[in-house]
């Protein structure tokens, strides 16, 4: 465990806490893409299949359970909770995310570290996580103005993978046998997808103005 990775995991946890805060405090999920939340639930369920087979550390197991439970809880809440689901932008959140799932799964069947059930699902979850934010970014573009908590949620979500890239660089130089090229390349694609959001987020922070993305 190095500082970059710990900072990345904490930033990831913060993004989830900010989203939970927004939904429970405002009893609203306006501006949040249900499709992105569903994709994240699939990402964690597909990636943490080794939860009961490979014990790495208490920290590792606890964080896996937290990520799985929180992502499923958010999807459940946006689908079932009466007040919350009324505020869901159903007509704006129309990205066909099933195509993303299919494409990532086919790609994982082609490109993986080992052709085993667990490794293929791990690669699938890495690819899917890289593109899971797309429905959310499309929704933000369509809804124009972004409320503070939603903006902070997306910002922390993007920042966590950027910190992981620093972690992979650090591990590459400090560990002889470290090669995580699938995660590294996907992580770069994932962070690049946030580039324009980060740009407008920085501008809004610098000018102390409301964050609004050009349509």
């Amino acid at each position: 465990m190095n500082a970059f990775r710990l900072a990345g995991d904490i930033t990831h946890l913060i993004s989830i806490l900010v989203l939970l805060l927004k939904i429970y405090a405002t009893k609203s999920c306006s501006g949040i893409s249900l499709k992105t939340q569903e994709l994240y639930a699939v990402v964690f369920l597909a990636r943490y299949l080794d939860l009961f087979t490979d014990f790495i550390s208490v920290y590792n197991s606890v964080m896996k359970v937290v990520f799985i439970l929180s992502s499923v809880a958010i999807v459940w809440c946006m689908r079932r909770h009466r007040a919350v689901k009324r505020s869901y932008d159903k007509e704006l959140d129309t990205f066909r995310h099933y195509y993303l799932v299919g494409a990532c799964f086919v790609f994982a069947l082609l490109v993986h570290e080992k052709f085993t059930f667990q490794e293929v699902f791990w690669a699938f979850s890495i690819y899917l996580e890289a593109v899971a934010i797309i429905p959310q970014l499309v929704l933000l573009q369509r809804s124009g103005n972004v409320d503070n908590l939603t903006g902070q949620y997306v910002f922390f979500l993007g920042a966590y993978r950027a910190l992981y890239i620093l972690n992979w660089i650090y591990r590459y130089f400090t560990e002889a046998k470290f090669s995580r090229w699938i995660a590294c390349i996907s992580g770069l694609v994932q962070t690049a997808l946030y580039a324009d959001f980060f740009y407008y987020y920085f501008l809004s922070w610098k000018n102390n103005a409301k964050l609004n993305l050009p349509a």
Binding site: D9, R47, F67
Partner: peptide
Amino acid sequence: ITSPSTKDEL
């Protein structure tokens, strides 16, 4: 000990 292929990252 964890084999190198074990995913130790979240």
